[in-house]
């Protein structure tokens, strides 16, 4: 089992606070997993990398529009050459996959938590390929060199239907303890209201989400929701004791998220 830690931008600013704890992680995940408006923060990704000299690196990328495609390419190029061409990139957009397979064929691409929903359905106690077509899609992606899927965490070993895909070689990275529910391009936090007659050239992000995340308590459900950047999560308990069983469901890497 490999161990990773996901660091948001504010975590990266306070890296010293992690201190010795960082040693136990093989992988550092950083980047903007869900929101393209925060990609700017990682323009100096090469400097960020210097803080993690002995770690394996995975750069997280979100859904992108044309506006940020060049920025994304710029950042990936920096990381790629700074880190001696050894990086993984998590893609949550088919456009990103197209860019990477075309221009950086050496980069290992992972299917991120948002895009994994195209392949898998998630329940509290199960993760399954949606249909035989999803398995066929995974087979096609394997031909493209993509065989790692990222998912959110569980508090016990989930049921799967992976036996139906035994001919496909794939692996799973499990992020914990925040389970992704939904993502939006216009976030709940850092964006002014849009008037009906307003011409939208681009999303005018105020980056107010960097201040903090929000806990939502509602009588409708047992769990608390967490609104972070442009996504909504629930917190899942993650029992480290179930690690041994995770390999049976193709999980060979678990990633702890310091914040959602």
């Amino acid at each position: 089992m490999e161990y990773g830690i996901k660091l948001n931008y504010s975590d990266l600013k306070n890296i010293n606070a992690l201190g010795e704890k960082l040693k136990k992680y093989d992988w550092v995940y950083f980047g903007s997993e869900f929101c393209e408006n925060l990609l700017d923060l990682y323009s100096d990704a090469d400097n960020i990398l210097k803080k993690f000299k002995n770690k394996k690196i995975c750069f997280l990328t979100p859904i992108i529009t044309d506006r940020y495609a060049d920025k994304l390419l710029y950042i990936i190029k920096k990381i790629f050459y700074t880190n001696n061409r050894k990086i993984e990139v998590t893609a949550n957009d088919f456009g990103t996959i197209n860019i990477l397979t075309g221009r950086f064929p050496e980069v290992k691409i992972n299917i991120g938590r948002h895009l994994s929903k195209h392949f898998f359905s998630f329940k509290k106690d199960a993760i399954k390929f949606h249909t035989e077509f999803s398995i066929y899609a995974a087979k096609y992606f394997k031909e493209l060199g993509i065989k790692r899927y990222e998912i959110s965490g569980y508090n016990k070993i989930p049921k799967t239907n992976f036996h139906k895909a035994k001919k496909i070689d794939f692996n799973i990275t499990m992020f914990y303890p925040y389970t992704l529910l939904s993502t939006t391009r216009t976030c709940l936090i850092g964006l002014n209201d849009i008037k009906p007659e307003e011409t939208i050239e681009k999303i005018k992000c105020n980056k107010e989400c960097l201040c903090c995340d929000y806990v939502v308590k509602t009588e409708k459900i047992k769990e608390e929701l967490i609104v972070s950047q442009n996504s909504t999560f629930v917190k899942a308990e993650f029992d480290r004791n179930m690690e041994k069983g995770l390999s049976k469901i193709k999980v060979d890497r678990i990633v702890f998220s310091v914040s959602p």
């Binding site: 948002h114 929903k117 195209h118 329940k123 509290k124 992704l180 529910l181 939904s182 409708k220």
Partner: peptide, 16 residues
């Protein structure tokens, strides 16, 4: 995001 949203399908949370 259409097709990727779990705000309606109750799979990942418990309704009171």
């Amino acid at each position: 995001i259409n097709g990727f949203c779990y705000m309606h399908n109750n799979s990942l949370y418990t309704r009171n």
